[in-house]
C-alpha cells in the first residue's frame, strides 16, 4: 500500500514565511521605485498620476477651510495696509503713465522694423488658470498640486504667478497636475541677467533663495539685477522675469530672490507657448549640467 505524502510544514510557519516574503517584496518595490525614478520611468509616472487622481478630490475638500482662513487673513491684512498701498499705487501710476507713452512709441517703431526685416513673430501664448490645492508636505521638496479640470496641460509647461515664473509642470493627471517650484532641488532653468546679458542656470536648492550657477567667474553681477529666462533649451521663452539678485557671496555664488510671493498665491497660470514638446531637450540639458557639475 502506497503511503500518501503529507505536507509537514506547520501553518504558523507558513504564515510567518509569507509575511516575511511580503515585507521583502515591499522593500524591493521601494528600492526599485528609487532606481526607476532616476530614469523617468513610465511605470512610476503612471502610478503617480493614478494616486494624484484618487487623492485629489480629498485634497480639494481638505483645502477648503485653509482657503477660507487665508482669505479672512488676507482681507484684514489688506485693510490694515490700505493707506500705504494707495500711496504706492499713486506713485506707480505716475510712472506707468510715462512708460505707457514710451511703450506706444516703441510699439510702432517695433512694427515698422519687423516689417522691414520680414520678422516672423513667436506663437501667441495661451494660458490656463489653476487652483492650488496642496503643497509639498516636508522640507525636502518644494512643489504644488493644482487643479486643472478638463484643460489641456502638458508636462514641461511654464507656471507663472501674475508677475513672474514660479515653476514648471512635472506630472499631469486627468484633472490635477504637479508643479515643481523654482526653489526645488530638481529645478534647473537657463537664465540671463537682464542688465549684462550674462548667462547662467537658476538652480533650486530647497531654500527660498535659489542659486545662480554656471556664470562666468568675472561676471558683472550686482544686487538687484533682474534675472529673466534665457530661452536656451527651448522650453521657456526668453525674457520672462524670475527673480532679483539678492546676495553675491565671496565664493562667487549668487543668491536669487524669486519675484513672485508664493505665500499669497491661490491660483497660478499654466502657460503654453507651444514649446513644451521640446521639454525633453531641457531635461537632457539639465542632466548634462548635473553630470558636468
Amino acid at each position: 500500500m502506497k503511503r500518501r505524502k503529507v505536507l509537514l510544514i506547520p501553518f504558523g510557519e507558513l504564515k510567518t514565511f509569507f509575511r516575511r516574503l511580503f515585507v521583502a517584496i515591499l522593500f524591493l518595490i521601494a528600492f526599485f521605485g528609487i532606481l526607476l525614478s532616476n530614469v523617468d520611468s513610465l511605470v512610476v509616472s503612471a502610478v503617480d498620476k493614478v494616486i494624484i487622481e484618487v487623492t485629489g478630490p480629498a485634497m480639494q475638500i481638505v483645502e477648503l477651510p485653509a482657503r477660507a482662513i487665508h482669505r479672512i487673513y488676507t482681507y484684514f491684512y489688506d485693510i490694515s495696509h490700505i493707506y500705504a498701498d494707495n500711496q504706492q499705487l499713486r506713485q506707480e501710476n505716475k510712472q506707468m503713465m510715462i512708460l505707457q507713452n514710451k511703450v506706444r512709441t516703441l510699439e510702432v517703431e517695433n512694427q515698422l522694423l519687423s516689417r522691414l526685416l520680414n520678422y516672423t513673430p513667436p506663437p501667441e501664448a495661451t494660458f490656463v488658470s489653476a487652483q492650488i490645492i496642496a503643497e509639498s508636505g516636508d522640507n525636502f521638496t518644494h512643489l504644488l498640486l493644482v487643479y486643472i479640470g478638463d484643460s489641456e496641460v502638458e508636462k514641461g509647461q511654464i507656471v507663472m504667478s501674475n508677475e513672474s515664473v514660479i515653476g514648471r509642470v512635472d506630472t499631469v493627471g486627468k484633472r490635477y497636475a504637479k508643479v515643481i517650484l523654482i526653489t526645488d532641488i530638481n529645478s534647473k532653468i537657463p537664465v540671463i541677467i537682464e542688465r549684462t546679458r550674462t548667462r547662467g542656470i537658476l538652480s533650486g536648492n530647497n531654500t527660498d533663495r535659489p542659486q545662480l550657477i554656471f556664470t562666468r567667474s568675472n561676471a558683472d553681477i550686482e544686487i538687484g539685477d533682474v534675472i529673466v529666462t534665457s530661452g536656451v533649451g527651448g522650453m521657456f521663452p526668453a525674457g520672462l522675469p524670475i527673480g532679483l539678485v539678492n546676495k553675491v557671496n565671496n565664493d562667487g555664488s549668487v543668491e536669487v530672490e524669486p519675484i513672485a510671493d508664493i505665500s499669497r498665491l491661490e491660483y497660478v497660470r499654466i502657460i503654453d507657448y507651444g514649446l513644451s514638446q521640446d521639454s525633453e531637450f531641457l531635461n537632457d540639458f539639465a542632466e548634462g549640467l548635473d553630470n558636468a557639475q
Binding site: G137, K178, I180
Partner: peptide, 15 residues
C-alpha cells in the same frame, strides 16, 4: 502617498 506628493525620488519615504 507621501512619495506621490513629493518631488524626491519615488520610494524614499516608503523605505
Amino acid at each position: 502617498i507621501i512619495d506621490v506628493y513629493s518631488s524626491s525620488p519615488f520610494g524614499v519615504n516608503i523605505l
